[in-house]
Design a protein around this nucleic acid. Structure first.
Lengths: 214, 214
DNA sequence: AAACCATATTGATATACATCAATAATGAGA
DNA sequence: TCTCATTATTGATGTATATCAATATGGTTT
């Protein structure tokens, strides 16, 4: 791998020196994926530390009835499933690209030896993991407490790209059926919170929407 | 703090030398709590690294209607909310003792300086965080996919103390009402999976129960 | 434009679970 | 043992959301 800039954009490595970055690059390689390709499956053995550099990635589990339960959605610049490689355990979930994208894979054995002894990097790793924990706790609180209407309101208020997503996909994130999502959009439109512009909806009364989940 | 054995029982510190343990003890103190006491509230600023040494602790969020949503239940020997102190952010949830218990509190500033530079400890910390992430992912998968019946089956099969808990408390963990829990116990008894012994239920057909959630 | 596909919407129905209210069982204290 | 308070059970009803089936809409390809 040669592009040091791409490495330094990853939050964890923001404060590495040039020499350290070079060393890191020497044990890293880049891989490209197309939409729909699988990065890893649940129960695979991880060998690399993986950083998402472009595209969006969804992490999901498959239930007995073969439904996907989406646990995470990653945007570029983040570590993916680092715990599996840190612990040396199989991936607890599968990951699949939602769009074309790319990752950087780092040889973990060498990374551990060369970098994990660096307290700055270690602390950055902690932070990355912590953020994930906080996120998951929020997901739990969100999905257990809020009803469908409130979940939709919250998601479209907090994620700019939500209204551009296919209902199919969005409903999956929000753990409801496309039919339910459709009815909620209709309700929001009737209430004057959304308008349909062309084929997409647009928020026109964010304040009212916010009340629904706070 | 003087009892080195208690420190060495914590998973993260299992492989510390005697001198290191002594150093750790010098920046640690023990605190006792009674049932129902609060260890910290959501949004409190963390100052200590906290280890649960006895008792059980529940971590929960409070929703707009003042319901508790339980995120974790900790047993002795584990780190509690380490990410908050690692990141220097407020606690994202509250924690409260379910029984009498005790914790060890470690001065984080000094800990960071003295111990986080030790790759062994750092790696153990990662593992602790990783386990939590895996646990939370399971909680999400569990609660979103499985219906009430399956959740009860799973919990009583996997947690030996579940059948000794008050319905009130157990139903809270499983995110359902005590009434629903009661009806499910009745159903399981009718089906011959449970029997009532005195005032408590007992599993007599674990295999059948297992089928319900796998 | 026409024809076609995927996606969205709508309606009718089913169902799991919550809620509310009443009663029963249990356990602790006098 | 009796009483009282807590917890558990049961029944009746309401409600949100899934499911199933039909229709509509929009975007693409020819």
């Amino acid at each position: 791998m040669q592009d040091l800039k791409e490495l330094s954009n990853i939050k964890c490595f923001g404060n590495l020196s040039k020499n350290e970055l070079k060393l890191l690059a020497s044990i890293a390689r880049k891989r490209n994926f197309s939409k729909g390709e699988v990065l890893f499956y649940e129960k695979d053995e991880p060998r690399y530390l993986t950083l998402l550099t472009s595209g969006t990635l969804k992490v999901y589990k498959t239930d007995p009835k073969n439904n996907e339960i989406i646990l995470h959605r990653f945007l570029p610049g983040t570590l993916v499933a680092e715990m599996a490689v840190l612990e040396g355990i199989p991936y607890p979930a599968s990951a699949c690209f939602e769009s074309d994208g790319s990752v950087i894979e780092i040889d973990f054995i060498r990374f551990k030896k060369e970098f994990l002894t660096n307290p700055d990097i270690a602390l950055n790793f902690f932070k990355s993991l912590s953020r994930k924990i906080k996120y998951l706790e929020d997901v739990i609180a969100l999905n257990i407490v809020l009803d469908s209407t409130a979940r939709v309101a919250k998601y479209i208020c907090e994620n700019d790209d939500a209204l551009g997503m296919k209902h199919n996909q969005l409903s999956q994130y929000l753990h409801m059926t496309p039919e339910t999502l459709s009815r909620i959009f209709k309700k929001f439109t009737k209430l004057g919170f959304l308008v349909k512009e062309g084929s997409n909806y647009k928020i026109i009364d964010k304040e009212s929407l916010t009340i629904l989940f706070e």
